[in-house]
Amino acid sequence: MVRVSLVFGEVADVYDDVRPGYRTGIARAIAEHHGGVPAGVLEIGAGTGKGTEVLLRLGAPVTCLEPDARMAARLTAKFPQVTIRIETFEQWQPPAGGVPVIAAALAWHWLDPATRNQRAYAALAPGGTLAAFGHAYGYADPGQARAIDAALRAVDPTVRSRPAAWLHDDISGSGLFADVRAEVTSRHLPMSTERYLRLIGTFGPFRTRTAEQQTRGLDAVGALVDGFGGTVVLDVRTTLVLARRRVVDSHTSAA
């Protein structure tokens, strides 16, 4: 996980307050894909535990990797029953035989794209499950979407969004995993101007901008949402990608 992920610790409490959680059905989908309750779960980049809360519903021991001690402290306070390791996925050493389930909640994009699929595949036990999921934030009103996008691009024209199916395409395109499938759900989430600006303040691209850009962006978006009546309705699109390590690795067996 690249070190820019450490910027979230600066706003750990705000992050935990304003970031929306995940539907409980994700745990059921993971268990069904895995074929039952796993013996254990490794979560990459657990943050303050938005994904951890769902993974605990599997009824299996959960080990969380979180490189930022400030985020890890918030996670520990919420879920003292989990094992927390303050390290990146790249620093972590898997046990002999691998782990049954590896999960990443809005963390896959922080991993090195050149190695993340290979690392996850190698760390899974034969037949093990990879579960990567996360939110993408849009807007229920297309007019509001265009206005906010234009305001943010005026502050920083380099802003780019990942394609909607990037998570599935990345994992499937690696050619490593079997039984790759994606589930996509969406829900509308109203937010006041104040709460939406706090949410923006937790986004990675925002936190890596200069202080001047951050101020200009918040001022511009705040004025827009106030003009919308003080509320913006987000379209929160949640993608869950499930994949499996083959029980018999064809690459290994061919060698």
Rank of each mutant, 00 (worst) to 15 (best):
P113N: 00
R116C: 11
V62A: 06
A211Y: 11
P38M: 11
A254L: 14
D112A: 01
R245H: 02
D149R: 00
G134Q: 04
H109R: 03
A31P: 01
E212A: 14
V4T: 05
Q214T: 13
S172L: 13
H168Q: 14
R28N: 03
A107F: 04
D149L: 06
A136D: 08
A125F: 08
H33K: 10
G204L: 09
R74A: 15
A165R: 04
S192D: 15
G138I: 00
R85D: 08
A39R: 02
A255L: 06
R70M: 11
R245Y: 11
V4C: 07
V155C: 06
Q214W: 03
Q93H: 07
S161F: 02
L197F: 07
H109F: 09
R209S: 12
A220D: 01
R85Y: 10
W166Q: 07
T215A: 15
A122D: 14
Y15N: 03
A27N: 01
V54Y: 03
E43W: 14
P38R: 11
L242D: 06
Y22P: 08
V11I: 00
G128M: 02
P190D: 06
S192C: 13
T115I: 00
A254G: 14
P126G: 02
C64P: 10
P61K: 08
E194C: 03
I26S: 07
A211G: 09
R70F: 00
G134Y: 08
A131Q: 02
T158F: 09
M71W: 10
G35S: 07
H168L: 15
L130S: 02
L111Q: 06
Q214V: 07
T231G: 09
D156L: 01
P190L: 03
I44S: 11
V155Y: 05
R119I: 02
T231D: 12
L55V: 01
R19N: 08
R119M: 02
S5H: 13
A164L: 13
R146V: 01
V7Q: 12
W110K: 05
E66L: 06
V41P: 05
A120T: 14
Q213Y: 08
H135E: 08
M71Q: 11
W110T: 01
A123Y: 01
G36E: 04
M191F: 04
P95T: 13
